[in-house]
Amino acid sequence: MTQHDQPPRITTGYDDTTTALQVVDGVDLAGKRAVVTGGSSGIGVETARALAHAGAQVTLAVRDLAAGERTKNDIERTSGRNDVDVLFLDLGDLATVDAFVAGWTGPLDILINNAGVMDAPRGTTKQGWETHFGTNHLGHFALATGLHPALASAGGARIVSVASAGHGVSPVVFDDVFFERREYTPNGAYGQSKTANVLFAVEATRRWAADGITANAVMPGVIATNLSRHWTAEQRAEAEVQVKQAESAGNFRMKSTEEGAATSVFVATSPLLAG
């Protein structure tokens, strides 16, 4: 594709203060089905809430079923729906991904690959892969490819890959993806996995275009969630200083979870992105 073949830029009246519920105002998702991984915490909650408000039947794919049930009850109370599902999924264990896929029946219109881990100490998934790459990328990769028939049967299905500006920290180092020969750094591992999230969205769209499936990778913004649970007190304090300095300089502002979810919800639902 040459520069002259690029599709026109899509613009909206939204900004960093727009919430997920504002994004779906006027959007009708009646009859649509959506899966949100990590749907019981952080921006996943507000992503699922907005989709339910717009009429979608939402499934929360979560590790903590108790938290998932609490979120389900909250979303149903605020959206007026009574069909939110909670299913177990641990992206760090492909056996649970396989079980999730095997249990899914019927079409799937929206898949939000939202769950993730950041800046964790060195560790491995159930299959022995480095935690960040195994969870953030390979788990979601297995989920999306496993659900491909359901996505294809929906007609016009959309995948949202929640990435991060942290992808700029590292490319995917294909010669040593799991840090077996190079020094492990939590930030580098996270950055590599986020780059993989972006590359997945690009390639999924290329390979599955004939099935009517499109994928987009998004940077939701800077939001205070439990994604930073692995930070030390010193890291947290340093981050707070950096945020205050950046906000004072007008470089960016911290978003609420409702605002952070808006980007995922936009690319998952906006008529402007059809096809």
Rank of each mutant, 00 (worst) to 15 (best):
A61N: 04
V62G: 02
A215N: 00
M118R: 03
S256C: 10
N197V: 00
T47C: 06
A152S: 13
Q3T: 12
D175P: 11
A239F: 12
G260C: 04
F179R: 09
N187D: 08
V202F: 09
T257M: 14
F133R: 06
D98L: 03
P149Y: 06
R236S: 10
T19P: 08
G42M: 08
D109C: 07
T11I: 11
A210V: 06
Y190D: 02
V160S: 00
G103E: 05
S41F: 09
L60T: 04
L94W: 09
K32Y: 09
E258D: 15
R229A: 14
F178D: 15
G42K: 11
G168P: 04
A201Y: 01
F174T: 15
T19Y: 08
N136H: 13
P271L: 09
A268P: 08
K32C: 01
H140W: 03
R49S: 15
V218N: 01
T145S: 12
G31D: 00
F88C: 01
R181C: 10
L272Y: 01
T59G: 08
A239Y: 07
A262I: 03
L273M: 06
G260V: 01
T78K: 11
N251G: 12
S270R: 03
V243E: 03
T18M: 12
L89E: 00
F100N: 01
V162S: 01
L60R: 07
W129A: 02
D211N: 12
A261T: 02
G92S: 13
A233N: 11
I75C: 13
T263A: 06
N216A: 13
N187V: 12
A249G: 07
R122Y: 14
F178H: 15
V86Y: 01
N73I: 10
P171H: 05
T225V: 11
A56G: 04
K244P: 04
S164D: 05
V172F: 09
T71Y: 09
R63K: 10
A66S: 15
P220H: 05
K255L: 14
P107K: 07
H4Y: 05
